[in-house]
Design a binder for these strands. Structure first.
Length: 453
RNA sequence: GUGAUUGUAGCUCAGCUGGUUAGAGCGCCGGUUUGUGGCACCGGAGGUCGCCGGUUCGAACCCGGUCUUUCACCCCA
């Protein structure tokens, strides 16, 4: 006998967990559809040529590769072995598990370009896999819920993303969170002003840690990454920047006046805010975070990140605008913007805050119990009637002690038990008992159905 | 990938400087109660102490490896 086990970073989901997950999925799905997004799915595995090189060197290392079928060594030579694992990879693995939903989506758009109606709004809810070291809130298999729109530069898309985030969070009962908003071009502009043109990549990586390690450590890291002291000092007012959104914009207009691209980014950000206003919306939960810098290299415009306050889980949603995601697949000039909810993290957050509604767990409404074969057969004649009337009903399948049947109902949180015994058979009724209150009444089938509806 | 950390019954955890048959609470099964669950009382089952190897007269305890958990870094949802 072997002890069963699970691969690192993967999990089973029990019925209770699934009910709760489906509750979250349901809210997200309904919201995406309300905004006109259409669902697609793509395969779990993609060709490695589709995946590699899209997530940076780090990302490539985190890809799960799939060994070729059959004799996977048949294309290799002794030289390949000598050259090491990296060189050999392309000869023994041609496929990999998807790392996110955005790159497969880009591939999908290119392959189906003639059949799609642009602007194309799609959503996708599927698992992704990363060969990361698991930690709290970090798994090797987890779901993403992506919504992207491609084929338009309209800032209304960004505004709608904010509205979708707000709707989902409201539905889930989350009231204390912030939608951090920034624009990659602003970061580019800041790098320019610092005299470090083109270095916004390393700037982002360092600045992103400000919350975690503090300003002085960030300065050290910037020096290490090749920024000069004068430039870093110019960053100081950005770090200290406080105030509401208009105030921050006002400051940056001045700060970025030398940087054309920086001003463009600022302009886009204002555009998103104006669009919200035109839609009759406000800026609740929206925060302009000048030092928000998301890792993924393909973002070129707006960037978002959502963090629930006062919980131990990292960001639960993020996204941004990209100019040319499909370019690598040979289709230029398709701008897009998208974002993703991390269901597994949302789950952890809702659990931590104890926000799952009881109703998310509702299962069977009534259990038919019986004392003997006669009662069981009487119950079999009734069970279908309940179901035909839309009542979730079960009949206990075995002839066991009534206590055990009641126990089953209690454990499974079934609120009603319908007792089928000799008395009921004679009077053509059932004894319907509310397990919560203990109240019991003798009812005809029609009355019972009425009561349960 | 780097550095730590965790693992004892279904669950949460005790278990002395290595020393007979490894414990508790909860849960589970049975009974008090053969037409009524939750509560109470009584009884019972259940562990090759993550796995492999080593040291020792003797290992849950010490050592090595491995897997797993959690954490920091890296990166990210």
């Amino acid at each position: 006998m072997q002890k069963p086990s699970l691969p690192k970073g993967t999990r089973d989901f029990s019925p209770v967990q699934m009910a709760r997950r489906n509750y979250i999925f349901g809210v997200i799905k309904e919201t995406f559809e309300l905004f006109g997004y259409q669902q697609i799915e793509t395969p779990s595995m993609e060709n490695l040529s589709t995946l590699t090189g899209k997530y940076g060197e780090e990302g490539d290392q985190l890809l799960f590769k799939i060994l070729n079928s059959g004799d996977f060594l048949k294309k290799t030579t002794a030289d390949d072995f000598a050259a090491g694992a990296k060189a050999m990879l392309s000869k023994i693995a041609e496929k990999g598990l998807r790392y996110d939903l955005t790159v497969p989506f880009a591939r999908f758009v290119v392959m189906n370009r003639n059949d799609l109606q642009f602007p194309f709004k799609r959503y996708q809810i599927q698992p992704v896999w990363r060969a990361d070291r698991p930690q709290k809130g970090r798994y090797r298999e987890f779901y993403q819920c992506d919504a992207d729109v491609v084929g338009t530069e309209s800032l209304s898309c960004e505004a709608e993303i904010i509205l979708m985030i707000r709707r989902v969070f409201k539905r889930l009962g989350l009231l204390d969170y912030s939608i951090k908003l920034n624009n990659r071009k602003i970061l580019t502009g800041i790098a320019e002003v610092m005299g470090a043109e083109g270095m916004e990549g390393p700037l982002c990586v360092a600045i992103d840690k400000l919350d975690k390690i503090g300003w002085s450590k960030v300065q050290e890291e910037l020096l290490q990454r090749g920024f000069d002291d004068g430039g870093i000092q110019k960053l100081q007012p950005i770090i200290d920047l406080k105030g509401n959104i208009p105030e921050k914009i006002e400051f940056l207009k001045e700060f970025l006046k030398q940087s054309e691209i920086g001003l463009k980014g600022l302009n886009e950000l204002e555009g998103v805010i104006d669009t919200l206003k035109q839609m009759g919306e406000n800026l609740d939960f929206v925060e302009f975070d000048v030092v928000l810098a998301r890792g993924l290299s393909y973002y070129t415009g707006a960037i978002f990140e959502v963090k629930v306050n006062n919980v131990s889980i990292g960001s639960v949603s993020g996204g941004g605008r990209y100019d040319n995601l499909t370019g690598v697949f040979g289709m230029d000039d398709i701008p897009g913007v998208g974002f993703s909810f991390g269901v597994d993290r949302l789950y952890d957050v809702l659990e931590e805050l104890d926000l799952f509604p009881e109703a998310a767990l509702e299962g069977t409404k009534v259990l038919l119990v019986h004392f003997d074969k006669k009662g069981y057969e009487y119950g079999l004649g009734l069970i279908t009637k309940f179901r035909e009337n839309g009542i979730r009903a079960e009949i206990y399948p075995d002839s066991v002690k009534i206590k055990k049947q009641f126990d089953y109902a209690t454990k499974k949180q079934i609120p009603f038990v319908a007792i089928c015994g000799d008395n009921e058979i004679v009077s053509k009724t059932i004894a319907l008992k509310n397990l919560d209150s203990g109240e019991q009444s003798s009812l005809t089938l029609a009355e019972a159905i009425d009561r349960l509806n």
